[in-house]
Amino acid sequence: MSEEHLRQQLREAADAHRPDRARMLARVERGMHERPAADEPERRPAVGWVRIAGITAGVVGALAVGGFAVGSALRPDPAPRQQQVAVSPTQTPPQAGNPLWADGSVDPGSNAYWAQSNVTFKTNSQLTGLTVELRVAQTGKVNSTGHWRSLPADDFTESVTERDGFLVYRWVLRPGRSVPVGEHVFAGQYNHAEGGRDAGADDYVVTGRTRDGQRVSVDGDFAEK
């Protein structure tokens, strides 16, 4: 049963209920004309009046309570409380004249045996060329366990090689594909020797080309800022 249907039934019940006024007045009138029996003390009529008054008050009270219940049910629902929701601030895109911004960081989900290095970059121009290279220093037992990027996999050729003491992850945008304006992530995953690994020697470079042919590049490392 819907809320609106319930309200309609309560309204109809309230309108249909009318106290039998004539019957109540007749009962009061009979009480006024009753005479006490000869062997009964004169205080009996007072008791009768108290009883009648009690009955009348009870009826009136019941009607009042019933009216309050119906009125409460028919009263419109209070307006819902407004709620404030905290929203995380959006990250500021690169400023005009600086098409690329990038940052390197070790993922917080890394542990004493395994790690993930993230290269996050933003571009305020569509790119028709892009190469991302992540170099992880061979600090002991470093070997690749995978990699991923937030852009479509089919748009890139990917490779992982070992060169000059580094594990090198490389992503190259395929011809005819493009990188949209926004923030993008490229990540390399690897095992390493037990313990806290020092990422101070790791680095990255992001090189791109805008639609008008401008070449842009940004690089950095993973040292604590």
Rank of each mutant, 00 (worst) to 15 (best):
E4D: 09
Q8F: 03
D15L: 15
A16C: 02
H17D: 12
P19H: 03
R21P: 01
R21S: 13
A22S: 09
A22D: 11
R23M: 10
A26F: 10
H33R: 12
R35D: 10
A37Y: 09
A37V: 06
A38K: 11
P45Q: 06
A46I: 14
A46R: 15
V47T: 12
V50N: 12
I52S: 11
G54K: 06
I55Y: 14
V59D: 13
V60D: 09
G61A: 15
A62Y: 11
L63Q: 13
A64T: 14
V65N: 00
G67D: 15
V70H: 12
G71I: 04
G71S: 09
A73Y: 13
L74N: 02
R75S: 13
R75K: 11
P78W: 08
Q83K: 08
Q83H: 08
V87Q: 08
S88H: 07
P89G: 07
P89F: 08
T90V: 12
A96H: 09
A96Q: 12
G97N: 02
N98K: 11
D103H: 15
S105R: 14
V106I: 11
P108D: 05
G109W: 08
W114C: 02
N118G: 01
T120S: 04
F121D: 00
K122P: 05
T123Q: 00
N124T: 00
S125R: 15
Q126V: 15
L127W: 05
L130H: 01
L130D: 00
T131V: 10
L134V: 14
R135G: 01
T139E: 08
K141E: 14
S144K: 07
L151I: 00
D155L: 00
E158C: 03
S159I: 02
F166L: 07
V168Y: 03
R170G: 02
V172C: 02
L173I: 02
R174D: 09
G176M: 04
S178L: 03
P180S: 04
G182Q: 06
G182T: 07
H184W: 12
V185E: 06
F186P: 00
Y190R: 07
N191I: 05
E194Y: 15
E194H: 13
D198N: 15
D198Q: 08
A199R: 06
G200Q: 09
A201I: 06
D203P: 01
D203Y: 01
D203W: 06
D203T: 02
T207G: 05
G208Q: 05
D212A: 08
Q214G: 10
R215E: 15
V218N: 05
D219Q: 12
D221K: 06
A223N: 11
